[in-house]
Simulated assay, not measured.
Amino acid sequence: MHLSVIDQSPVPEGSTPAEALENTLELATLADRLGYHRYWVAEHHASPFQAGPAPEIMVGQILARTTGIRVGSGGVLLPYYSPFKVAETFRVLHALYPDRVDLGLGRAHLSREPAVRALRRDAADPTATHDFLDKVQELRAFLGGDEFPAGHTYAGLRPSPETPGRPDLWVLGASTSSAVATARLGLPYAYAHFLGPDQTVEAVRRYHEEFVAHTAPGEPAGKPRAILGIGVYCAETQEEANALFSGHRLFRHRMERGVMGPVPSPRQAIEELGEDVALAPDPGPGHEGHDPYVRNAVGTPEQVHARISELADTLGVDEVIVINSIHDHKARMRCYELLAEVFGLQPRAARR
C-alpha cells in the first residue's frame, strides 16, 4: 500500500505563519527521505490557523528540495481561477520536474464572504460552484487530456510551455456526490475521510461502480484510482498519542463555537477541556462505542497501522494519504517517522 501526506501548513499557537511554512518544507523533505509516495499541500485563504494560500508556490519549493516523492496540490480551489492559468502554472512545474507533479482540484467555497469576493471580483456570484465540473473538463483539455470540439472558443489554443506528458490530475472531495461526478469524468479521486467519515463507504463504492474510462489522445484508457485521506496522531505510547491529539480536539471544540485561531497545545487542551476530556482515548476494536470509520487514527504505531489497514482493506483502496495538526513540530515529524517504520517504507537517498 502506498502511504502519502497531505499538509495544511497548520500554525501552532505561539508560532508564526512563516514558521508554519518552514515546517512544511522541513516535513516534506523528511517525507521524501522516509519513502512516502506523495506530498500534497492545501489551499486556504484568510486563515489564522493554516498558512498556505498558494499551493503552486509551495509545490515548486518542495520539488526543489526533494528527490523522488510526487508533489502536488491538495487542492487548487478551481472555482476561483481560470483553468487556462492553472494549466500553464502546473505545466511549468511539470516541465521543470517531469512525472513528479500532481494537480489536485477542490471545489469548496469559503465561508468568509470578503475573502470569496476578493478572490473572484469579476464573478456575478462569487460563491457559486456550479461551474466546477465544466472547469475541470476545460482544464483537462488545456493539459492535453482532451480536445476542444471544432468551433469551440479555445480550440487550437496551446498553453505554454509545450512539453511531453502532463501533471497527474486528481479531484478531491468529501461526499458521495463528488465521488460520482469524478467517476463519470474518468478521473482519479481522493476522498477526505477526515472530513466526511459518514459517507466514506458509499462514496468509494460508488466511485468504482460509476467510473467511466476516459481515453486521452494517444494513451490507454484510464482506470479508477482512489486515495483515502485520514487523520493520524501517532506516538510511542497511547498516552503520548492522546496528548498529541488533544490540541486538535480543543481546536475542533473551539471552531464548533465560532472561535478561529492557531492550533492549541496539549497544556491548553487540558486547561480548557479538563484532563479527562482532553486526554480521553478513542475506544478501540472490541469496545462498546468503537467506530471502525472514525476520522482519525490515534495511538501507537501498531494501533495506527491496524486502524489504517482495516479501513483500507474494507474499502479496497491501495493508497492512504495522512494528515494532522500537531502543535509541536518535532512531535509531528516523529509521528511521520513512526508511521514510515511500521508500514515498512523504503527510504530514498537524500539530495546531494
Rank of each mutant, 00 (worst) to 15 (best):
V59E: 06
E209W: 01
A31D: 00
T314H: 15
L195H: 13
Q346H: 03
T182P: 05
G173C: 13
E26S: 14
I57V: 15
A306G: 05
V298Y: 03
Y191G: 08
T66K: 05
R140L: 15
A174G: 15
P149G: 12
A297K: 02
R257P: 12
V204Y: 00
A226L: 07
E256S: 15
Q238V: 11
I323K: 00
A331P: 01
S111K: 11
E162C: 08
V41N: 02
N324M: 08
L21K: 04
H290N: 13
G35T: 02
R70W: 02
A278M: 09
H37F: 10
R158L: 13
S160P: 00
E272V: 13
E302L: 08
M255V: 15
V41C: 12
L172M: 12
L21H: 01
R65H: 05
R307K: 08
E236Y: 01
P53T: 09
E272W: 00
Q50Y: 05
H253E: 14
H305D: 04
D276E: 15
L338P: 06
L172I: 04
K330L: 12
V76T: 15
P262Q: 01
H2W: 03
H305P: 01
F142V: 08
P347H: 12
Y97R: 10
F84V: 02
Y81N: 10
E271W: 01
H45A: 11
E341H: 06
G68R: 06
S47E: 02
R140W: 13
V298K: 02
L21T: 00
G186D: 04
K223H: 04
Y81A: 03
G75M: 01
